[in-house]
Each structure stands twice: as structure tokens, then as C-alpha cells.
Nucleic acid binder design. Sequence first.
DNA 1: GTCTATATAAAGATAGAC
DNA 2: GTCTATCTTTATATAGAC
Lengths: 207, 207
Amino acid sequence: MSEQDEIPRAAATPRGRRKREAILAAGLKVFMAEGYAASMDRVAAGAGVAKQTLYSHFGSKEGLLRAVSDRFKHDTLRGLDPAGDLGAELLAFGDHMMRKLFDPETLGIQRLMIAQADAFPDLARIVYAAGPGRVREALVEFMRSKVEQGELRPVDPDEAAEDFVALLQGGRRQRYLFGIERAPDAGEIRRMAQRAVAVFRRAYTVS
Amino acid sequence: MSEQDEIPRAAATPRGRRKREAILAAGLKVFMAEGYAASMDRVAAGAGVAKQTLYSHFGSKEGLLRAVSDRFKHDTLRGLDPAGDLGAELLAFGDHMMRKLFDPETLGIQRLMIAQADAFPDLARIVYAAGPGRVREALVEFMRSKVEQGELRPVDPDEAAEDFVALLQGGRRQRYLFGIERAPDAGEIRRMAQRAVAVFRRAYTVS
DNA sequence: GTCTATATAAAGATAGAC
DNA sequence: GTCTATCTTTATATAGAC
């Protein structure tokens, strides 16, 4: 009923909270870099903390992973204005979304969760829902409005949202996951978003 | 100059070759299921072989991973006929591609390579090139022909190929990677391919 | 709650017999 | 070339002092 209850609560004091934060940050960083196979020793070293402190706070390696994943639940996302211009809204949203999706931190946590999807399905769900899932959700409502307003053909808003996200990411993101291409810079992202909007409009607006 | 040269060659005798095959099969299976963190003991047990035999053939854990990955280099892919009907060719190709991409074995090896992309960039490259990379390559030439024939608008064939693949996979494949949705069955794949072709034609054919 | 030091198990890799 | 038995290192997790 109080603020938050982790399994073992070791964050009552201010110093405890600082250590806890340091561990979480180090845990994210180390897991992202080396995967879940990374050792607890490394996490402790990264946080500048004794290994036992780490166990006091999170109980086990799995507990730490869960705490790290939970952080992503609270990520927020730019909204869409159903009254705004179709192309402009999609462009701004697409641009914002791509920046998130190609962020190195997003890459790291998603690689981690994809690798551990069988071992920790619930965590994979959390990370997906906080990232691509949230993106899709936000788009569906917008598409529905635009269909009702007659700007888009009378299509399933779900499919329209799905296709727009697909066009945005293109193959580039897949290659980014595989480490084959680096992340696009701001200019490239802009151009990718513009292209996606153009293709989407051709396919989906009334002609 | 002979057939094949692995680092340590232990496959001279027929029995040796059988063991080698068994190890490769078990290696793929175990790595796919548990990731690269899986133990060599498990691989040996899966192959019904002593651990030392495994080391005789592949030298190290990394050596085994490389041998397992190399297998995927030889995967083949359905071709496209530039003289064929645009929609029919894309549909057949898309259908075939999706069956491969949603195959559990493809899922396993790709998850593995995404997770190990930083540790073994060359292997990630191999697996990507054998899967999505090959798909894209095959499509680019087809798109170029169709642009020259005037069936498609005068666009960059590379971008057209990229977009078609993106539309095909949609968000479904991403969710599949995260373990959130199961693989689509034959009927669903068919419908997904049909939808992708329809959207692609709207966006890319001359009107 | 945090540290140092340690228990215990499991990993990758090898020695030596056949 | 393949097995059994073993070496060595490193992992997760814990005991006990402050």
C-alpha cells in the first residue's frame, strides 16, 4: 500500500536508494553490453558496490533483470492530434518514434529481451509493450479518426497503423538489430520518415 | 584445396562424419533453445557424444558456433521471373519468404545472432545475408525490371524492394521475435502476403 | 545496509587410456 | 577418434564482521 514494494526492500535510507539506482543503471548497461550471461561481479563493479549489496536489493540475478526491465514500463510517447494534418502528424510522429527505436539503449534492451524471450516471456512482453506496442496503440486511434473523417480510405485502422510502422522501420531496423548497419542520424531519420509518409499516403489516402 | 577444411579436421572416417553431423544438429538445437550461454555438456549430451569428441571436431565453443552458423550460408531461395505477372510473382515470392522467415529454425538462429551481434559480428552478417539479405537481393532485380517495363512508377528499385519486404513482415514478425505472437499458419501467411501485395501495388504501380 | 571473505556448483577445456 | 576422469576458472549465492 506504500510507495513501492520490491521483493526484498533495502531502499529505506537515502544512501540505500542511491546504491539501488547505481545498481540498476549498471545492470542495464552491463546486461545490454554482454547479455544476460554477464556476471553479477561485473554489475557490482560497474555500480561501484559490493556484490552482497546487490543481492540485498534484488535477491537474485533474475530479480535484478526484472527490476531493470520494469524501468521501461514508464517510458512515454508523443501523441497524435486527430484534428491535425495527416501528413504532418505522421511525419512528426514517425520522426519521434524512429529516434526512440534507433536509440542505442532501446537496441540493447530489445536485443536482451529477444534473446531471453523464452526464459522470461513476461519481461519480453513488458519491453515490447513499452516500445513498438505503444507506438502501434497510439497510431490505431489516429488512423480510425482519419478514416472517419474521410481522409483515409475505409480500411481497418489496425492494418493501416501496422503498415505505417512497417514502412517506417523498413529493413534498416532489422539490419540495425543484427549489427549490420549503424543507427541513422537525425537527417537520415527525417528522410526515412518522409519516404514512409509518402508511400503510406499513396497507398491509403482517397484518390 | 580438397572438399572442406575446418580448423581441426576430425571427419576423415564415416563414423567421424556421422558424429560430426550429430554434434552440429545438437549444437543448433541447443543454442537455439538456450542461447550461446548453453553449456558444452548439454550439446555433447544432445548429440550422444563425449565432450572431448566435440572438442576434437570443433576445437572450442566458438568453433562450434561458427560451424553451426555456416550451415545457413547454403540456404536457397525461390527466384522471381521478371517476365511474369507483377502481382502473381510478388504473391508467390512473398508467400515463400514468409514461410522461411516464420520457420522456428529461422527464429532460433536469428535470435541467437541478434543476441551475439556484438561478440560475433561476422556470424550475424552471415545469418542475415542468408535470410533477409538474400530476400532483398532477389527482389531488387525484379523491381528494376518492372520499373523498366513501365509497370512500376520510376522509383528506386532498392526502396521498392525494401518497402515490399517491410509490408510483408509487418509488425507480426517483430512480435514473433519477442515471443508475443506465435507463427502464422499457412492460411494466415497467405492472407498477409495478399494484403502486402495489394498495399504495395496501390503505392507503386502507375495509375 | 554494506563490506570482505568464502562456500558450492558448474562452466570451458584437457590428459591419458583404448 | 572416442571415451572417462580431471584440471582450472569463474559463476551465483551466502556467512559474518561492522
